[in-house]
């Protein structure tokens, strides 16, 4: 069957898609928690204030089964209840703020050593995939890329437990985006 074409997420998804604690894959104070944050930039180097990022990763043990409960509802009144603070769902979603900044809190993925990222934005007609690697592990994709391209996928340690990962949609230091067939 032929697929349904993609269309841009547009500018007005803000009250529909982001959810409270969407970037908190683990709660504050979780043992081994790390923060990954950065900016999204357009081809003029300007921050993108209306991008939406989704994250998907293995848990610390390398399990990719995923769990429900990222956007749990209160079963009594239907209001937003949020994550239960225990279950690692593997999924996160954050919108960039007016400065083009985003942040998530998670644990380093086990076995499959990257956080998969999906980028949506006004002006982007079809989402883009990339990956956050926390170190240059020599993993297959990294090994296949020339040094300057490889560097765009590797988060920079800023201080203990905090990593910086900027996404450049276009331009000189353009992030490597993936063709997933």
């Amino acid at each position: 069957m032929r697929p349904t074409p993609s269309q841009t997420v547009g500018p007005f998804y803000g009250y529909a898609l982001p959810f409270r604690d969407g970037g908190d894959l683990v709660p504050s104070g979780h043992p081994g928690a790390i923060s990954v944050h950065g900016y999204v930039y357009d081809g003029a180097g300007a921050p993108v204030p209306d991008a939406l990022l989704e994250f998907w990763q293995a848990d610390a043990a390398g399990n990719l089964d995923g769990r429900p409960g990222s956007m749990r509802r209160d079963e009594v009144d239907g209001s937003f209840a949020g994550r239960d603070g225990v279950t690692f769902t593997g999924f996160g979603r954050v919108a960039t703020d007016l400065d083009g900044h985003w942040a998530i809190r998670t644990v380093p993925p086990g076995e499959v050593p990257y956080i998969a990222v999906c980028v949506f934005a006004r002006g982007l007609l079809h989402h883009l995939y990339t990956r956050v690697y926390l170190e240059d592990s020599g993993e297959a994709l990294l090994a296949s890329l020339p040094g300057d391209r490889r560097a765009t996928l590797i988060a920079e340690p800023e201080r203990d437990g905090v990593y910086r990962f900027d996404i450049r949609i276009q331009g000189d230091a353009e992030t490597v985006f993936l063709d997933l067939g």
């Binding site: 081809g43 993108v48 934005a121 002006g123 982007l124 890329l145 949609i169 276009q170 353009e174």
Partner: peptide, 15 residues
């Protein structure tokens, strides 16, 4: 608004 918001480089098929 797609002008500055699309990559110039081809997408990379990961191994």
């Amino acid at each position: 608004s797609s002008g500055l918001r699309h990559p110039h480089r081809p997408l990379v098929a990961p191994p």
